[in-house]
Amino acid sequence: MVLQRILLVEDEADIQAVARVALEMVGGFEVQVCSSGQQALQEAEAFSPDLLVLDVMMPGMDGPDTLKALRERSTLAEVPAIFMTAKVQPAEVEYYRSLGALGVIAKPFDPMMLANQVRQLVEEGA
């Protein structure tokens, strides 16, 4: 699978900005940012991402809910997903995997390392 287009769902503007630098400039990916689950539902299909990166805790629709809703769209049913969250106990990682995610990236992330972490999770999942 070619990993080029990443849809990032994250409500925090500050984190969005840093993640964009980390994924676009450091990682060389093409990134579309959505500030809420709702927005992701509206824009995801048109963007046709290779990967979904979702913040777990967001007001309104949280990350897991957003993923579930995105999965119901046939074009997005198979797109791999990664969660980002502050709390990463092993049990939680298992829980997020059970929701169909490849894995979890811990927040705060290191901007210089984020793209590598993403690639690694995708490679391991492939």
């Binding site: 409500d11 925090e12 500050d14 984190i15 993640a19 502050a86 927040k107 705060p108 992330f109």
Partner: peptide, 14 residues
């Protein structure tokens, strides 16, 4: 809670 959560996440990445 929302503000603290945002701060907790954003301070670290900076």
């Amino acid at each position: 809670h929302q503000r603290l959560h945002a701060l907790a996440g954003s301070a670290g990445v900076h």
